[in-house]
Design a protein around this nucleic acid. Structure first.
Length: 282
DNA sequence: TAAGTATGTTAAG
DNA sequence: TTAACCTACTTAC
């Protein structure tokens, strides 16, 4: 469930604890949480699907990656506070709770992550260095993505999932973006024009920004329009039924032309595409 | 109740 | 290329 938009959302919500002193515990003992107990959380940051959390007086950052099943849940609690300013009783814990941060108003749970580890400053730099530009970060520029893609014979569907080339796109966004751009997933990167690459990037920026604002992946044209309006007005976007164009729709008729959607393994995951709306290039 | 699948990634072979 | 890792949900029996 964690493509880049979801991780940025986790970072935003966890940021509600920034500037406060936190209680830090690891219920399963698999994270050295006591090092952060009583420290002030300084800030959070997302780069693609990676989440970083920084604390006062500690160099580097805590690095979290949710994988497919992990999540970071930040919520308000209303528990009675003890003399130390922290809740007297613990909010209920989910299965797989690896790391919990508490302050007087909020609880943040890191649940079943693939990675929850301590990085020093150099490791943190190395992490950023091995990730490509993130469409959801306004301090990132797409040029490295354009350059690598233009020089690569690998399929664009591979390149979009390669986090070294562009960070944050997952299997759903790959499928939906390539459909919207009419590009077959097996098209080699070096066969794409600069116009097409620019369109892929800006579509990723637009779609993922709406996904971040809505809290889920919105892809259907009508839902996109409506979600955009709600987000602009600062209103929550309800969880309408998900209607993807191609993702997960193997064998179902294309919503645009009726042709059955195709699906095949591309890299580690299944790619979905419409053979007519996304014609192969020869 | 068991098996299969998933919006992900790494390491082994 | 394959298996492994983690949890939650769906489907099959």
């Amino acid at each position: 469930m964690a493509e880049g938009h979801a991780v940025h959302g986790m970072a935003q919500r966890l940021r509600q604890l920034a500037g406060t002193t936190v209680r830090s515990v690891s219920p399963d003992g698999a994270f050295p949480a006591s090092a952060y107990d009583g420290k002030r959380l300084v800030d959070t940051e997302a780069h693609g699907k990676h989440l970083l959390v920084r604390f006062d007086d500690i160099e580097g950052a805590v690095h979290i990656h949710c994988g497919m099943t992990g999540r970071v849940s930040t919520r308000r609690h209303r528990r009675a506070l003890g003399d130390d300013g922290f809740p007297k009783t613990e909010p209920p814990a989910a299965n797989g709770l690896r790391w919990r941060l508490l302050n007087r108003t909020h609880v943040a749970d890191v649940i079943a992550p693939t990675i929850c580890e301590v990085l020093n400053q150099e490791d943190t730099r190395a992490l950023h260095a091995r990730l490509g530009p993130d469409p959801l970060r306004d301090d990132h520029e797409p040029e490295p993505f354009f350059t690598t893609t233009t020089q690569s014979r690998r399929a664009i569907g591979m390149l979009l999932l390669d986090q070294r080339i562009v960070a944050g796109i997952g299997n759903v966004y790959r499928a939906e973006i390539l459909f919207r751009q009419g590009i077959h997933p097996w098209t080699p990167g070096n066969r794409l024009s600069s116009t097409e690459l620019a369109a892929i990037w800006s579509d990723a920026v637009g779609l993922m920004a709406i996904g971040l604002g809505a809290g889920w992946i919105v892809a259907a044209p009508r839902q996109l329009t409506e979600a955009r309006e709600l987000i602009d007005q600062g209103l929550p976007v309800p969880r309408w039924p998900k209607t993807y164009a191609v993702y997960g729709r193997r064998g179902k008729p294309c919503r645009q032309c009726g042709t059955p959607i195709e699906a095949a393994r591309l890299g580690q995951q299944t790619a979905f595409w419409c053979p007519v709306c996304q014609p192969p290039r020869d």
